[in-house]
Design a protein around this nucleic acid. Sequence first.
DNA 1: ATCTTTTATTTCATCGGTGAAATATGAATT
DNA 2: AATTCATATTTCACCGATGAAATAAAAGAT
Lengths: 164, 164
Amino acid sequence: MDEGIERVGHIIPQLPAVEARLSRLMLMTGSGLETELEYKLKPHKLNHSEFLTLMVLYSRPDGSSTPSELCEYASQGATNMTRIANALVKRGLITRRASPEDRRRVLIRITPAGRRFVQKMLPSMFPLIDGVFADFSDTDKRHLNRLLRKLAHNIDQLRDATKP
Amino acid sequence: MDEGIERVGHIIPQLPAVEARLSRLMLMTGSGLETELEYKLKPHKLNHSEFLTLMVLYSRPDGSSTPSELCEYASQGATNMTRIANALVKRGLITRRASPEDRRRVLIRITPAGRRFVQKMLPSMFPLIDGVFADFSDTDKRHLNRLLRKLAHNIDQLRDATKP
DNA sequence: ATCTTTTATTTCATCGGTGAAATATGAATT
DNA sequence: AATTCATATTTCACCGATGAAATAAAAGAT
């Protein structure tokens, strides 16, 4: 991956070269990480969205949420969230029931089996997240965190500016 | 995008929390940037791979390359590169001819029209790459560059380690 | 009581990407 | 000359994702 970053973007006249290279680097790294993650998830028959959804539920004290809320977190459309929920229900990792207060809403809750599943599969992610930041010092991590947040924020701005 | 990063990954017991949050941040930012890029490319009827391929050719002094070489840079399979080349040829942005020395090889070369096309469409990317790094100081950029390279390198290592 | 809005699901269609294997051609090796 | 290797293309098939619009059900507003 590292090869070829240097060459591309050198002989480009106008264009803010430093920023363009950073963008490209960011894209390559991001998609590289994404690929690795999906690869680690494959044995557990999960894709990224399903994993994310499950983790959100797992992280909640009461282990529950609603489809529309989960759509936000997993940045998915409602249609997809229905699909994801279907898949997870079928595997017995979550349950779906109508909310008692507002019966339009659906309460999605992680099951005990779902929790066990997460506890069992999560450690298989450790080599990845450890390995990726293996040689990062604490200040490295703080810096990266700060810079990525800044970047994410700017991207959000652009999104809002063009497509309100 | 920024919302919800904090919440997820808080109440996860074992797991290296800092690194997990960084991974997630990286994934979100990367895919956010990717989305923005594709969005900017859409008016020019280019996808990311085609854009990349075209930029590699544009950046070459002689404006030429071969399919297999381009596969490397665009991290695409040979089948896809044939498709990409087909698309670009059809639009008159590149040409394809057999190499004189080794007639198995195909020489792909950007056309004058292709160069004009790049020069015309490239500026529409500036708002994106400028905007994204708008409030980044020079040291910010240097740091981000260093950290991303480190990250990319580690990801490469992992890839090689698991799938040789 | 009726109309509007919210929430989720279903239906349907599509899109873009992907890739393995067969084919074609030419070069290199023996 | 025959065999093997390298390069690119074609064929075929599939995958995963995606999303707009129609539907259903219930809450809220008037």
